[in-house]
């Protein structure tokens, strides 16, 4: 499939997910389990898909190629190729300004988010915030916080996707481990608490949400191990790191 088509599909999927999480927000926040394990991940995933589609940032170590510029050009070429010549010229001029601007932003952003550390830290904070029972309660009564939830999680998704690309395996492992122990501990606390932690959710529901969090804390590292199996295999068998890394690189890019 052409890259343009792929990007469009990802945009469409992202928008569809975001729209679904907005339309079904009442149903998806009715129980704690749905709220934590469906609604919040949905918005985050919509952001991740958008980040994937935009392909912002590229290089594994601090943005060697600027994806913002890349995708900007792609859109312009794809969208205006058949237009009348005057409109086309204007479009190309606007496109040039837009491309320069996007490239500059991408450059500044890439310098701030070197190795994806700042971005992954941001995503970790967002994850921690949404494990606080009080946050789950408050977002149900405050429209202001509800808007903040959508915006924060979506942006966190975009940043997460981009930061994962910029990061290396050590950084990824650190943040993944950090998130997983946090989720596991919170999940165990949810299961053990004899009291309801959220005023809006029932006790049995809280236990179920706790189990779900523990499951995530187990499944995410397993998924990561699967995705990095070549690299790990290379490390274990002593095949030189570059070769193993190249293999992993081929798989991921």
């Amino acid at each position: 499939m052409a890259p343009v088509m792929k990007a469009r599909l990802r945009w469409a999927a992202s928008l569809a997910l975001l729209a679904a999480s907005f339309i079904f927000r009442d149903a998806l926040t009715r129980t704690m389990t749905l709220h934590m394990l469906a609604h919040i991940p949905m918005i985050l995933l919509a952001g991740v898909l958008a980040g994937w589609a935009a392909g912002t940032g590229g290089g594994r170590s601090g943005g060697r190629r600027s994806g913002g510029r890349h995708s900007g050009g792609r859109w312009t070429r794809g969208g205006f190729a058949a237009g009348p010549s005057a409109a086309r010229a204007a479009a190309i001029a606007t496109g040039a300004v837009w491309r320069r601007c996007a490239a500059e932003c991408a450059k500044q952003y890439a310098r701030c988010n070197e190795y994806g550390i700042a971005g992954l830290l941001f995503a970790s904070f967002v994850g921690a915030y949404w494990m606080i029972p009080r946050a789950l309660d408050q977002v149900l009564v405050s429209p202001f916080l509800a808007v903040g939830k959508f915006a924060g999680l979506y942006i966190a998704g975009v940043v997460l996707c981009d930061s994962l690309r910029r990061s290396n395996v050590v950084i990824r492992l650190f943040f993944l481990g950090n998130f997983c122990w946090m989720a596991a501990i919170v999940g165990l606390l949810y299961q053990d608490s004899p009291q309801r932690l959220c005023n809006f959710y029932l006790l049995g529901d809280q236990e179920l949400a706790g189990r779900g969090l523990v499951a995530i804390a187990v499944l995410l590292p397993l998924a990561w191990l699967c995705s990095e199996r070549r690299r790990i295999w290379g490390f274990c068998t002593g095949i030189p790191g570059r070769q193993a890394g190249r293999q992993a690189g081929i798989k991921q890019s």
């Binding site: 941001f122 904070f125 915030y129 309660d137 408050q138 009291q195 005023n199």
Partner: peptide, 23 residues
């Protein structure tokens, strides 16, 4: 900046790291 923002949000949400539940 991310640390300050993140810690600030957690601080605000937990009433200065004292309360994690509404109750």
């Amino acid at each position: 900046l991310v640390c300050i923002l993140g810690a600030g949000a957690l601080y605000w949400q937990t009433d200065g790291f004292t309360a994690v539940t509404t109750e």
